[in-house]
Nucleic acid binder design. Structure first.
Length: 417
RNA sequence: GUGGCCGUAGCUCAAUGGUAGAGUCCUGGUUUGUGGUACCAGUUGUUGUGGGUUCGAAUCCCAUCGGCCACCCCA
């Protein structure tokens, strides 16, 4: 049979397969994210990846192109237009609007959902990805902004990053709106102004100054030294708390989104990863699509792949270990019933055990356990069964320890993974 | 969506238009109750795919698929 008759084993363009080691890495990352959020009182929610297409289309005309060209949208068998969610904000806004009278406020929510975007893939940008989404609803307090940023900071630290590994740049939409207003910029010119600010780091200073001048905005207005009062207060709090890598940066404006207050981005400072790992900001009324009562809030998102690259560049990804603690191999196939009894004893006691069925030579059984990176091995043979004791081998060191059958479970349970 | 670089054994990569190779992995043996180190032997393959140029293509050209990079975008 020729090769071309067969299907490719590659995953779909821009998406990843998660083999056990990859899935374990993702799970460990998620568990750190959950821990950080829950420690600050955020609770987890979830929703379907399928949303009615109109949820994104109706937001505003400005992003129509993005929705049309960069989402997965299709018509279902019932003639409904469906979109695979490209972001979480409309979904969480819908959920909050639906239960707004039942919730207590401030409402702290987080989620780690997957998203789909029809984009050209490259490093750190895929067609399916996961994102931590953290939001606090129903508060206008600066303390909420501060808390949200401190959660983002906490994530980076909990993953093993030190302050020299990343920086959080905080900008202000109102401050830049005021600059635009003072310069008498039209709505179109304001848009250009924001786009210019956004690209500031990608161009030489002189080019930036020229473009700024062309718009009629004075350089001093976008100086990092002109810190807006609320951000100055926030930064002072962080400094008092011993946090030194959160700074004001007037060029942070974050695209066209619904932001109306502070905005911020978390940057990976590794030369290999010159990119933002996440960002967010404050919005005045996220539920405007669903009702007329204002719902202020502040939130941020962080992508799984940028976080993984952040950790990888610094050796912060721990080596893989499977949940399986012990592999039970058979010296002879006819010992399977005896081995099964032993395995069940161990499982009953709470040990995670994988059992070989004795189809292959003992050496191959051990090789398989080793390939699976299972830390311990027991060989069940007639000698061991008669003696009532087993040699427990550490497959990483090759060292063996003799343990009586009655003590086996306790032996493994005291060796926590 | 635009432009550039790339695609060779399961993996990492050689081979400058002239017989497709190395390391690793894998399989068997040294060793029929013991893996990861050692020694011996063996398979690594439609050079991403489809066309074209040529006496001859992994190599040059076109298309297509996929990866990477920059732009765009970054909800």
């Amino acid at each position: 049979m020729s090769k071309s008759d067969k299907l490719s084993t590659d995953p779909y363009k821009g998406v990843r397969d998660f083999y056990p080691e990859d899935q374990a890495m993702l799970n460990r990352l998620f568990s750190v994210l959950r821990m950080v959020c829950e420690r600050v009182g955020y609770v987890e929610y979830g929703a379907s990846v399928l949303e009615p297409a109109e949820l994104y289309k109706s937001k505003n005309a400005e992003n129509e192109e993005i929705i049309n060209e960069q989402t997965y949208t299709f018509t279902d068998r019932g003639d409904r237009e469906v979109t695979l969610r490209p972001e979480m904000t409309p979904t969480v806004a819908r959920m909050v609007a639906a239960k707004r009278r039942e919730f207590g406020y401030p409402l702290r929510l987080y989620s780690i959902p997957n998203f789909f975007r029809y984009e050209r893939p490259q490093r750190g940008r895929l067609r399916e990805f996961w994102q931590l989404n953290v939001d606090i609803f129903g508060s206008r307090s600066l303390a909420a902004d501060t808390e949200i940023i401190s959660v983002a900071y906490g994530v980076m630290r909990a993953l093993g990053g030190s302050e020299s590994d990343f920086v959080i740049k905080v900008g202000s939409r109102p401050a830049m709106n005021e600059v635009a207003q003072r310069a008498g910029l039209s709505p179109e010119a304001t848009k250009k102004f924001f786009a210019l600010l956004d690209r500031r780091a990608k161009m030489p200073t002189t080019e930036f100054e020229q473009n700024l001048q062309a718009l009629g905005v004075p350089m001093a207005a976008v100086s990092p030294d002109e810190v807006p009062a609320d951000i100055a207060e926030m930064l002072e709090q962080f400094r008092a708390g011993g946090v030194g890598n959160i700074v004001y940066d007037p060029s942070i404006v974050r695209g066209f989104a619904y932001y109306t207050g502070i905005v911020f981005e978390v940057f990976d400072l590794h030369p290999q990863n010159n990119r933002a790992v996440g960002g967010g900001g404050r919005y005045d009324n996220l539920t405007a699509l669903f009702d007329d009562e204002p719902m202020p809030g502040v939130g941020f998102a962080m992508g799984d792949e940028p976080l993984r690259l952040f950790m990888d560049a610094r050796g912060l990804i721990p080596p893989y270990t499977p949940p399986t603690q012990v592999y039970v191999a058979l010296a002879a196939p006819e010992l399977l019933p005896e081995a099964t009894t032993l395995v069940q004893e161990l499982r009953q006691a709470g040990v995670c055990v994988a059992q070989d069925f004795g189809e292959r030579k003992l050496g191959d059984q051990i090789k398989a356990a080793s390939k699976h990176k299972i830390p311990h091995l027991i060989v069940v043979g007639q000698d061991e069964l008669t003696a009532g004791a087993f040699a427990v081998r550490d497959l990483t060191t090759g060292e063996e320890e003799h343990v009586g059958r009655a003590e086996l479970a306790a032996y493994f349970l005291t060796r926590t993974i």
